[in-house]
Simulated assay, not measured.
Amino acid sequence: MNPDEPRAIPAPGQDADRDGGKTARPITPASLERAALAYLERYGASTEMLRRVLLRRAEARCRLRGEAPEDFAAMVEAVVARAGRAGLVDDASFADAKVRSLRRRGGSARAIQAKLAAKGVDRDTVRAALAAHAGEGQEGPEEDEEAAARAYARRRRLGPWRRSQDRVEARQRDIAALARAGFAPALARRIVDEEDEPAP
């Protein structure tokens, strides 16, 4: 086989790891490390996200080879631990980057906590990232939440960012949209009821 030739894409249900009819390659620490590096080159990830990716990869290989996935759990944990020691995964840095990004887009503290919890970041790490972000400049947590609510309303064109003739009719819907996004009802009402579109 010419090494410069692109490999054929396997048909659905066909093992991508098969080569000329051979069975899927065995799971090894080296293969899991390669998978971890390939994933981390493309995505920022928490420790738990990396663990889930590697476990799914191991499970897929095990199905093809007729092996038990639990036999490789310790191998996955060892690779995840090495990635952590090497600084390739760091939940505090991951949480900090996500908080910055989500706050800029108008994410409420509640929504951010839920998103990061789903990615396996523990509550204390998320709280610390939110507190660190609120401590930038002279803003405190309340001001930071208000700035995020304003950013969300601006992005969704709610309240003062809505056409003036539509505002009264849409008021309750706009308040409900902010509340669903995780903002306190009192804050949602204050943002929606502002007289004019605030200066950026």
Rank of each mutant, 00 (worst) to 15 (best):
N2H: 11
N2K: 08
P3K: 08
P6N: 04
P6E: 08
R7G: 13
P10R: 03
G13D: 04
Q14W: 09
D17Q: 13
G20D: 08
P29E: 07
E33P: 01
L37Y: 09
Y43L: 09
G44K: 11
A45L: 01
M49D: 05
R52D: 11
L54M: 02
R56Y: 06
R57N: 12
A58P: 00
A60R: 11
R65K: 10
R65F: 05
D71V: 02
A78L: 06
V79I: 14
A81H: 07
A81F: 05
R82K: 13
G84N: 02
L88R: 09
D91F: 02
A92I: 06
A95G: 09
D96R: 14
S101D: 10
R104Y: 01
G107W: 00
A109H: 06
A111F: 10
I112S: 03
I112V: 15
A114L: 07
A118H: 08
V126P: 00
R127D: 15
A128R: 11
A131N: 15
A132H: 09
G135M: 05
G135T: 05
E145R: 07
A148K: 01
A148C: 03
A148F: 06
A149R: 00
R150A: 12
A151E: 02
Y152H: 07
R154P: 00
S164G: 13
Q165D: 15
D166C: 07
R173H: 12
D174Y: 04
I175R: 04
A177Y: 01
R180E: 10
G182P: 03
G182K: 01
R190A: 15
R190Y: 09
D196H: 14
E197I: 07
E197C: 14
